[in-house]
Amino acid sequence: MIKPKIQRYKQPRTISEYPVGPSFQAGHLVFTNSNYRTFKPIIDITLCVGCLACYATCPDGALFRRGKKVSIDYDFCKGCGICASECKAKAIAMKKEEPGRNE
């Protein structure tokens, strides 16, 4: 799987260390982004048929391929539920997050 790693954010110390305008190499991630998720997709891997419909429709690229099937990167999944809705095999269920998860 090609997935950028989280990198430590280095605060620029001079103006010249900033990029020239808001333009920077793609895939430079400095923090995870998922803590406002209300529902969490759970894959029952025994039901997954590997059709990749969820992988293709995830708006955030949070699904990734694992062997012939898929897995979810919960650091970036926003819980939108599109994967569960698109899954013809009904292998993905949306489960309410525990209250206080983000506090």
């Binding site: 990029p19 020239v20 305008g21 808001p22 333009s23 920077f24 190499q25 793609a26 895939g27 430079h28």
Partner: peptide, 12 residues
């Protein structure tokens, strides 16, 4: 800042 397939960038 020029972007191409070899140098993908986040813009804006």
């Amino acid at each position: 800042n020029i972007m191409d397939l070899q140098h993908p960038r986040n813009l804006g």
